[in-house]
Nucleic acid binder design. Structure first.
Lengths: 203, 203, 203, 203
DNA sequence: AATGAATGAGAATTCATTCAT
DNA sequence: AATGAATGAATTCTCATTCAT
């Protein structure tokens, strides 16, 4: 792992840990064992470093959604695959998920916001295609609110995973415990598959 | 409205608009037409001002949940009332919703976090009581995941309302348009009532 | 002298001494025995502090030119008064004269440049009026190049006073010696009065 | 043109354009299409690169003055030749003229200053010799202030050419216009020849 | 209760220079 | 001779807080 990658990794870790505003470039450079100036050298600025992280992340998600969309599986299997993928993904990136929204809200960098939105729109469209496809094949109900159904999928996981102190204390789930975490992931997959099937599938 | 209230109001407005870190005490004092020093004078520090806002907010929510729980309505009506209340509430406080989680993540003030969690736990318990009640009366299914069901309720609304640029661009919803906003609220209420009834109610 | 004035005074001193770029806000705040932040507090930024200095200075010059222009003296007396005024002025502000041009050349702040030019234009017009008046009264020759005559007046003094190492070493004039300095001022006044009278006055 | 010369050329161009402090070694290396490190490699440091530029420039001037001094022409012709030479020279090097003084004032490199002063002293002595020669031959008046006369020559041109925004706006002269520029040079030569002859030549 | 001035710490960024190749 | 990566020092500015009134 070269310096540039080390910086990226350190930034990802810290930015979620403490938020974008609370993470200083010095923190990042210390963790990455790189000189402060290297951040400007490689990424131009703190903000652009952040943009690079988002870019990488969103593209990654996009590829996974597209992959599921392009399989030959029936719609209900695709739904299950999406739930599984999303739960795994958001959990494994719990350190990152959430910041996007947090920073989106801080309107001080319209350019960055625009970029994030573009990424998200792309991912969203890819996701929508899968549901529309299920509707066309008359496996999914026609009269569902596609946008809000996606909001339920993502929002539920986000709610569980994001504000982790709440998760781990309000929801009485122990943190740092891999086993318990896997249990929770299973619970989430089951809950979401159940609620979404009930909501989506024709009877 | 006295100076203290003016400061509180200004803080609420700005902190959501730009986030906690991006809101300076000077911004707040300017908007409140108060002197900077008054913030320290009345609230002790910026952080304590923030805590005061959260306090007020959470207590407000708690009262509303308790009120619904204490009515004589049947469980399915209470569910509908909760959906309506949550949608209205989060929408009307969209300016505030989200910061809590955002700041929770920034771990720099454990005390503040603890306080937020206590508030939330209290609200959460009150909410859970309502669902457990419906289960006891055999209107709601017994084998549902109560915690995650609440996560779906709150998370779905949050997902729609929170990152509003995404809302307004990815979800193709026009901002600043009261009529469209009401339309969206109706959509959300319908979607959530539908999906939660399908999920919760015994057949 | 309050803090704001102290900062202004310290800035004037240092900026000429070492140039704008070589003077740090920390230097200024140290000399002014003020905190660094006070510079932003009072002036907004280093650049605006510089602008304030220029403003004050140019306005001061303008008033003096206007005063001479408005006296009842004959043109040749006004010329003498101008020479005297300019020599005294540039000498007494030798610490300041020159920076304007130095910074004008560094084109990085177009706004500042625009402002400086406006000030100078105003002063220049006032000066020109005096010479034109002498021409109208047929005391001064009609066929002189007014712009370049002013350039000679200002440029000569500037050349002597500005690059003071050259002045004091190339021109073999001892620095820091008040007596010698007065001698030099007399020399300059004599030289300029002589050369300008020879150039301007009708025979 | 090899790399070293390219760097020198790029440095000359940029340093005047933006001033010494505002020109970064990276700017220079970019324009010269050379690596940053080559500047240190060839010149030792940014400052020494600057010294090299000054050296070249001053020597060039010295040779021209000496050439005029060594011709057989009568003093008044030499004066005219000097005016012409100086106007042409300062104009053609307007990009460079002025920085010398600007940097001289920034006292942070005494060595560099000393060097510049030496160069200037040499040039100045050569110039003075020409005037003294004219005095000896009783063509020029004996009672003139030689130093200040030279200051008038150089200062007037500098005043016109140096702060070019003032020149081009206060003096109402269009920039970038070769024809107008030549016109201005002629004006200057005429003005200076006139004023200096009137001042210097015996009647 | 209220103010404006003042403080000191900490932020991101930029720069000339050097090192390893 | 030439390069790209890396360094550490320095700079301006912003912020929450406190002091004197």
């Amino acid at each position: 792992m070269n310096k540039q990658e080390q910086i990226l990794a350190a930034a990802k870790e810290l930015i979620y840990e403490k938020g974008y505003e609370n993470t200083t470039v010095r923190d990042i450079s210390n963790l990455a064992k790189a000189n402060v100036a290297m951040i400007s050298y490689y990424f131009g600025s703190k903000e652009k470093l952040f943009a690079a992280i988002i870019e990488e992340n969103a593209t990654n998600a996009f590829n996974k959604i597209e992959y599921i969309g392009n399989t030959e599986a029936p719609a209900e299997k695709k739904l299950e695959a999406l739930v599984t993928m999303y739960v795994d993904r958001i959990f494994s990136q719990r350190r990152f998920f959430g910041i996007i929204y947090r920073e989106l809200i801080s309107r001080n960098s319209p350019e960055l916001n625009k970029h994030i939105i573009e990424m998200h729109t792309r991912n969203y469209e890819s996701l929508k295609k899968i549901i529309n496809d299920g509707q066309q094949k008359e496996i999914f109900k026609a009269d569902i609110d596609v946008e809000l159904t996606i909001a339920t999928l993502v929002g539920t996981i986000g709610q569980v995973v994001n504000p982790n102190d709440i998760l781990y204390q309000v929801y009485k789930i122990e943190t740092e415990d891999k086993e318990k975490e896997n249990e929770l992931k299973l619970r989430l997959k089951k809950h979401l598959t159940g609620i979404l099937q009930c909501h989506l599938i024709q009877k």
